[in-house]
């Protein structure tokens, strides 16, 4: 596995497509247990990301990821903006000096990103936040020498689906307590799109 600038752009474009296509779905998930803006926020942010990275030429993966981070930070807002922004900022720092990432470098980058999310949001696994998707994905990388795209997609999808049956402890859904059970966490669904797209980008990069 090797992801260079083109492959990462491909990853982000696929993520953007899924987000735009599911903008209303994400919003309706957030209406059920939050404030109904997650689809709007992610759609606005990723549209700007694609605008930025497709109109800039990059020599380094770190620069590309830093632009993604800064765009998400300044365009998404809400809880998800600083979290996704921090994640990409940490990834950018993690890949400094690299032209492309192999499996190990990607694993390190994702782990750094997860740690950034945990530090910023102070959520724990099981709090019904996007941490519940990022944690098993990072675990999956750690536990596998080779990343099979379908498995990556499956791990992130299962993780996303698992948020349905738990009670929220962080984010706006936490105010609902028991009433948050039975609803998917919107941020976990957008994180699932990110990792499902990563799986596709990895696969296409190998073709």
């Amino acid at each position: 596995m090797k992801l260079g600038i083109q492959e990462v752009i491909n990853w982000l474009e696929k993520t953007n497509e899924k987000i735009q296509k599911n903008k209303e779905y994400l919003t309706s998930l957030d209406q059920a247990i939050g404030d109904g803006d997650h689809g709007i926020n992610m759609s606005r942010g990723f549209q700007e990301v694609i605008g930025k990275i497709t109109s800039t030429s990059y020599n380094s993966l770190a620069d590309l990821l830093k632009d993604v981070a800064m765009t998400l930070l300044s365009k998404v807002g809400g809880a998800s903006g600083p979290l996704y922004g921090t994640a990409f900022l940490k990834m950018s720092m993690s890949v400094k000096g690299k032209e492309a990432v192999d499996k190990q470098a990607l694993e390190n980058a994702l782990e750094d990103a997860l740690n950034g999310i945990l530090q910023r949001g102070k959520a724990q696994l099981g709090d019904k936040t996007l941490v519940d998707v990022w944690t098993p994905v990072v675990e999956f990388f750690k536990n596998h020498k080779v990343i099979e795209s379908p498995s990556l997609e499956e791990v992130s999808r299962n993780a996303m689906e698992s948020t349905k049956e738990v009670m929220a402890k962080k984010g706006r859904a936490a105010y609902l307590k028991e009433r948050s059970i039975g609803h998917l966490d919107p941020g976990s669904v957008s994180s699932y799109y990110l990792f499902a797209s990563l799986a596709e980008a990895i696969k296409e990069g190998e073709e």
Binding site: T27, Q31, A32, I33, G34, D35, G36, D37, G39, I40, R172, Y175, L176, K177, R179
Partner: peptide
């Protein structure tokens, strides 16, 4: 209704009220 969302944040029947809701259309307690 958030303008960009275009539909109400939750629904309440004609005889219902929501107690302890937030100021962002979040459902109440």
């Amino acid at each position: 209704t958030v303008p960009a969302a275009g539909k109400p944040s939750f629904e309440l029947a004609d005889n219902e009220m929501e107690v302890g809701m937030g100021i962002h259309g979040e459902p109440g307690t």
